[in-house]
C-alpha cells in the first residue's frame, strides 16, 4: 500500500490540477488578507470555502482520478498485491495531495501574516484541520461511489447529489425539523443530527473557536456542557475521525467484491 501511495503521490503532486488547487487557495487567502486585515473576517470567509468548496473539489477530484486511472488500475490489479492496497493507496494519495495543496495554499499566507504569534492561532489551526479532514472524508466518499459505479455520468451525478445533500439540503431538513418540534426538548436531537453530517461537524468545530460567545448564550445544560468545555471539541473531532474511517471501510468492502 505504501508503494502505491508513494507513486500516486509522485503522480498527483505534479498534476496541474493540484497546482491549480494550490494556486486557488493561495490567491484566495492572499486576496482575503489584502481585502481585510481583520483576521476573524478572513476566518469567516475561509470557513465558507472550507465547508462548501473543499468537499466539492475533493469529491470531483477523487472521481476524476479514479475514472482516469482505470486502465492503470487494471495493470496494478495484475500485479502481486492485494486489491485493497491498490485502492487504499490511491485514495490516500488523492486525499493526501489534496490536503497538501490545501494546507500549503492556505497556510503560506498565514505564515506571511505572522499568524503563529497571533491570538487567533487556535481558530486557524481548527480551520486547517477541518479542511484536511473534509478532504479525506469526501475523497473517500467519492472513491466509494466510483467503485460502486462504473458509469461515469452516474458516478458524478451521484457524488454531486451526495455533496448537495450534505453541504446544503441536510441543514434545511435539520432546521425544518427543529422548527417543527420546537415545543419539545431538542438539545440532544440537535447535537445528534449534527454528528451525522461531517460538514456540520466541521462547522461546529470551527464555531467552538469562532462564535463561542454566542454559543454560550444558550440556556440548555447539555449544550452548556458540550460547548463550555473541551468535551464538545473532543466529541466533534472523534466523530469526524469516524467519518474518515467510514469510506475507508466502504472502499475495502467494495473493492474486494468488484469486477474490473
Amino acid at each position: 500500500m505504501n508503494k502505491i501511495l508513494k507513486y500516486s503521490l509522485y503522480d498527483l503532486i505534479r498534476s496541474r490540477w493540484m497546482f491549480f488547487y494550490f494556486g486557488f487557495f493561495l490567491l484566495f487567502t492572499l486576496g482575503l488578507f489584502w481585502l481585510s486585515p481583520d483576521l476573524s473576517k478572513v476566518a469567516i470567509s475561509m470557513m465558507n470555502i472550507i465547508l462548501i468548496l473543499v468537499p466539492l473539489i475533493a469529491t470531483m477530484f477523487g472521481l476524476m482520478y479514479f475514472y482516469n486511472s482505470r486502465e492503470f488500475t487494471e495493470l496494478l490489479l495484475a500485479q502481486p498485491i492485494p486489491r485493497r492496497h491498490i485502492f487504499l493507496g490511491q485514495y490516500l494519495g488523492v486525499a493526501g495531495s489534496l490536503s497538501f495543496s490545501f494546507l500549503l495554499g492556505m497556510g503560506l499566507p498565514f505564515l506571511f501574516h505572522g499568524l503563529f504569534t497571533s491570538a487567533e492561532l487556535p481558530l486557524f489551526l481548527t480551520l486547517l484541520v477541518s479542511g484536511v479532514l473534509l478532504s479525506f472524508i469526501f475523497s473517500g466518499i467519492s472513491f466509494y461511489i466510483a467503485l460502486k459505479n462504473d458509469n461515469r455520468i452516474r458516478g458524478f451525478s451521484l457524488a454531486i447529489l451526495v455533496w448537495l445533500m450534505l453541504a446544503v439540503a441536510y441543514d434545511g431538513f435539520f432546521l425544518l425539523l427543529l422548527s417543527y418540534f420546537k415545543d419539545y426538548p431538542l438539545e440532544k436531537p440537535a447535537l445528534a443530527l449534527s454528528i451525522f453530517n461531517p460538514i456540520d461537524l466541521s462547522r461546529i468545530l470551527i464555531l467552538l473557536k469562532l462564535d463561542i460567545a454566542a454559543l454560550m448564550g444558550f440556556t440548555g445544560a447539555v449544550f452548556k456542557k458540550f460547548m463550555g468545555s473541551q468535551i464538545g471539541m473532543l466529541i466533534a473531532f472523534i466523530a469526524l475521525l469516524f467519518w474518515m474511517l467510514l469510506p475507508v471501510l466502504g472502499i475495502r468492502r467494495a473493492s474486494s467484491k468488484k469486477d474490473f
Binding site: Y7, S8, Y10, D11, L12, S69, L75, P80, P82, R83
Partner: peptide, 28 residues
C-alpha cells in the same frame, strides 16, 4: 494474490499515470 507474481500480463489499453515518467513507472 501472490500467484500473480508468476504471471506476466499485458493489458489491452496502455494508459498510465500522466505525470509519472517512463523510468519511474518501470521502477514502480
Amino acid at each position: 494474490w501472490q500467484y500473480r507474481d508468476h504471471i506476466s500480463y499485458l493489458p489491452q489499453i496502455a494508459r498510465f499515470p500522466e505525470n509519472l515518467k517512463t523510468a519511474e513507472l518501470i521502477a514502480m
